[in-house]
Design a protein around this nucleic acid. Sequence first.
DNA 1: TATGAATGAGTGTTCATTCAT
DNA 2: CATGAATGAACACTCATTCAT
Lengths: 189, 189, 189, 189
Amino acid sequence: MKDRILEAAEKVFSEKGFYDAKISKIAELANVSVGTIYRFYRSKEELYGEVIKKKLLEMEKEVEEAVEGKEPLEAIKVYVNTVVDFFSRERDFFEIFMMELGSSFIIDTERFNLSEWYRNYVRKLSRVVERGTEEGIFKKLNPEGVFLLISGALANIDYFRLKGFIDVKPEEVKELVLEVVLTGLLNRK
Amino acid sequence: MKDRILEAAEKVFSEKGFYDAKISKIAELANVSVGTIYRFYRSKEELYGEVIKKKLLEMEKEVEEAVEGKEPLEAIKVYVNTVVDFFSRERDFFEIFMMELGSSFIIDTERFNLSEWYRNYVRKLSRVVERGTEEGIFKKLNPEGVFLLISGALANIDYFRLKGFIDVKPEEVKELVLEVVLTGLLNRK
Amino acid sequence: MKDRILEAAEKVFSEKGFYDAKISKIAELANVSVGTIYRFYRSKEELYGEVIKKKLLEMEKEVEEAVEGKEPLEAIKVYVNTVVDFFSRERDFFEIFMMELGSSFIIDTERFNLSEWYRNYVRKLSRVVERGTEEGIFKKLNPEGVFLLISGALANIDYFRLKGFIDVKPEEVKELVLEVVLTGLLNRK
Amino acid sequence: MKDRILEAAEKVFSEKGFYDAKISKIAELANVSVGTIYRFYRSKEELYGEVIKKKLLEMEKEVEEAVEGKEPLEAIKVYVNTVVDFFSRERDFFEIFMMELGSSFIIDTERFNLSEWYRNYVRKLSRVVERGTEEGIFKKLNPEGVFLLISGALANIDYFRLKGFIDVKPEEVKELVLEVVLTGLLNRK
DNA sequence: TATGAATGAGTGTTCATTCAT
DNA sequence: CATGAATGAACACTCATTCAT
């Protein structure tokens, strides 16, 4: 039931954005009454926050498990793969994610501070780049900057692919980003 | 007068986002009455669209003039410079731009189809990359993909810089992106 | 069980008033489920009515038994004593009673018409005054008016005492009212 | 306009009580839109508070002006007259007043603390009784108690008169109360 | 019979939009 | 043309009541 609501919310929020999403529409889609939604979530904001939180933690988990213990170079390959796959699978969430990114995660709930989470996520994953630099594999560049470069590039291309604005396959997106970024990052001689 | 309204709108929209921006607040800031705003703009949506349109065309003009007639490699350098400078100058608009990007320019007005505009912008500027590929300078990669990579990377890093999430200077952002992307893009024998 | 519900209801209604009292809160306090309350009482209104009815009948009984067979003068003394004692004992009900008095017992249920009951109560007890007048002990005044005078005075003083607005003891309230009213009522030569 | 709203609110609140009064109904009666009400009053609570405040201050003013400079005995006569006349004139407000009294002025707004006001009102007017006692005209009794006795008696009788529960004229109410209370209060040798 | 999760009607409040002055 | 008061549609949220278990 909570899950049905969360799914419906994800769908509606992704289609309409936070403000145009109507609780009644979510209820309808989830096949529950409006009141039932409020049994599980105190407010529209909280429901929205929970949708994001859930997926974000899923994404974080997948990414971390994939990257874990890998060499920097391999880790970046794996990161790109995992993220593109995740977003391909979670299109609705991807929409929401992009919206929130653009609003710098404005909707922060008591239970889950999204912008704080994202800063940590960036910090944590940029460690991979940092290690690569320390090992002399990567050029000496701001690690967080590099991570933001990769994730920004990835999200942007993939977003337009999902919107149908450019005609490429997910695999091509991965290849493109890896080709450019890895070559650009590697310390040649 | 129209300009005063547009400026006020830009400010308020950037601070509050589309939905939390109040027409009355814009009127107050522009030192006009609410009614006057409606003399120039049919609706909140239209006003919002005009704010974006105006800045977008400015940005487009600056970018095109800067890139015009340049060699591909130089053109990309110039593009990165121009965009970072533009966003540094136009912080308010940058906020709005990022929000709209994430909502895939949902607010389309009759007068100005934002998502259509953006597709053209991408197509047009990706020609620079295409030319580089044709001239054998750049690797053979999807040109639009490459452009989206560059612009996505740029926007993402710069956005977090503006939010104060990472501590870098605009010049460093340019250098970082150019270092990685150009090296990654160049066709090394 | 019915009693536990009634007690809980009395408490909650007295604290919150009819509208802010929540059935769920009453259920919690009575240690029964919401459904159980509805097994005994058809609606919130009915439950409220029953709370009042029960106490009102108790009060009526006590007052009547106390007054029964007494001489008019003594009867009034006894009435004042009984009512003040009753309200001292039944503070929660006193709160509800005052609220309802002010809303002229708006909540009438099919089973128990409160305002009708109150009219009867006034009529019945004013008979004491009437008898006193007939016997020539009391001045010739509207008996119901006199009764309302006594009960109004009593309730008002006692209410403010209970609220802590004036610092007197219950006994002083009785004395005060009896002193003024009885002297004022007696037919001096 | 503000006045029209206030009048309509007074009417609806007096008929329905605070909770059952609908803002939309008040708007309809005042011949304004719902939005207009909110231009003048921030909330239903505030509107309610303003209704009471306005009338209460009117009543206070009338009573004070009437009582001003009068001998204690005369002052009480004048008080009774003024209050009964005021309530006869302001039936709707009288209803609201009785409701609020019973709920001990629960609805306190930031702008006007009703229960505080009432305590002051009682304190101030009970000075009349106090003076009578000091001058040896009245018996030595708790002055606030005496005032509450008078006002409670008055309100109670008059309320039932207005409800049509007892058949007396306003003048008889005054006479009745004055007859009983004044005789009861005077210090007979 | 008891439970308490599910229901959904109902309402205060906001704010884009209009239009009389 | 400019104003800003007035409008009223729209929606989140509550809670009395129901009913499947």
